[in-house]
Simulated scan of single mutants.
Amino acid sequence: MFTIGCHLSSAKGYLKMAKDAVSIDGNTFQFFTRNPRGGKAKAIDPADVAAFHEYANEHGITTFLAHAPYTMNPAAAKPETRQFAIELLTDDLMRMENTPGQLYNMHPGCHVGQGTEKGIELIADALNQVMTPDQTTTVLLETMAGKGSEVGGRFEELAAIIERVDQADKMGVCLDTCHVWEGGYDIVGNLDGVLEEFDRIVGLDRLRAIHLNDSKNPLAAHKDRHEAIGEGHIGFEALAAVTNHPALRDLPFFLETPQDNLDGWAAEIAALRAAHQEG
């Protein structure tokens, strides 16, 4: 089954997000766990969670992706910033257990002048402080565009973090098409080669979700600017090929394209569904 959805507002709860997803022919969705710039998370309503589970079962929604806020930086040089990230991670992973067995995505972090190796060490240490053997949530590290001091712009960096995490069996990767393209991985001209490299370095078994986005910038721009499907430098055909690739086609796909309303995402989902080949 082709699983595709978009990034929705969590302001009105899980049930509303599920209904919004279904209204645009989606069967999954993504949301921020709290304000993307940080702050306190909205309290979880058990009645909303129960209603969501009932509705999701009726409409074939089995997976969703929760996204950590952008301000969370477990690789920070400042102790207070790093401690904030650890506290936020702890709270988010506890909250995720209200909906067991789901996916939690995070930008690995920025080393802010400490160097990539130090950043990798700090990110893994933070994850070791917060992840537990009994958690049901899979934590995903997102592939990054490699701007500034971002960690995760190369597959080797993601692999190095995962190798240092005690609960590595609960770790995975979310591949962002815009990010890897701007990071220098040619998914337009050599998708097979990029996936072979990912498999050799990280392992395709670690790949659990795809952020499907076009890019405003050319290959290796290292800027992280998303574009609507088919309107950027990656293009519709290459993105449709991502959804049809045998190694990727059964993963959940999440649109983070710059749309002003649900209608824009509905059009993108319809076009991608028409180009998707079940098999």
Rank of each mutant, 00 (worst) to 15 (best):
D250H: 13
P108T: 10
A51F: 04
G153F: 07
A247N: 08
T136M: 08
P133V: 11
P108C: 10
M72D: 01
L255C: 01
L272V: 14
E87W: 01
A160Q: 05
L8K: 01
I162E: 04
E142G: 05
D25Q: 15
A159E: 04
V112Q: 15
A267T: 08
A159H: 06
L158C: 02
L141Q: 12
Q135L: 10
G235R: 12
P258C: 04
I4Y: 06
E121N: 05
F2G: 07
L212R: 14
L127Y: 11
H111G: 12
G109C: 09
K216Y: 03
I162F: 06
L251Q: 00
E237Q: 15
L93Y: 02
W181N: 11
E157V: 07
Q114Y: 02
V130I: 11
Y14E: 01
V165W: 09
G5A: 03
T3A: 00
N35H: 14
C110P: 00
S10G: 01
G13V: 08
K223C: 07
G146Q: 04
Q259Y: 11
N98G: 00
R164H: 05
M144D: 01
G115W: 11
A275L: 11
A228F: 02
N98L: 03
R249F: 00
H67F: 09
D250M: 07
L191T: 00
H53E: 14
A221G: 10
A247L: 04
L103V: 12
G13A: 03
E156C: 03
A209L: 12
F31S: 13
A228L: 14
E142H: 08
E197V: 06
A41T: 13
W265N: 14
K19I: 02
P252W: 01
G13H: 04
G113R: 12
D199C: 10
D192W: 12
V49H: 07
I229Y: 07
H67Y: 09
I201K: 01
K12R: 15
L219C: 03
I162M: 14
T243H: 02
I61C: 05
A209I: 12
N35G: 15
T63K: 11
V194I: 07
L15I: 05
D134G: 09
P108I: 11
V242I: 15
L207V: 10
L89P: 00
E231V: 07
C6T: 15
A238S: 12
A271S: 14
E268S: 14
F52V: 03
G26F: 09
V173I: 15
A75K: 04
E196P: 00
M94N: 13
H107Y: 12
F254W: 00
M1D: 06
L204M: 14
P108L: 07
H111D: 11
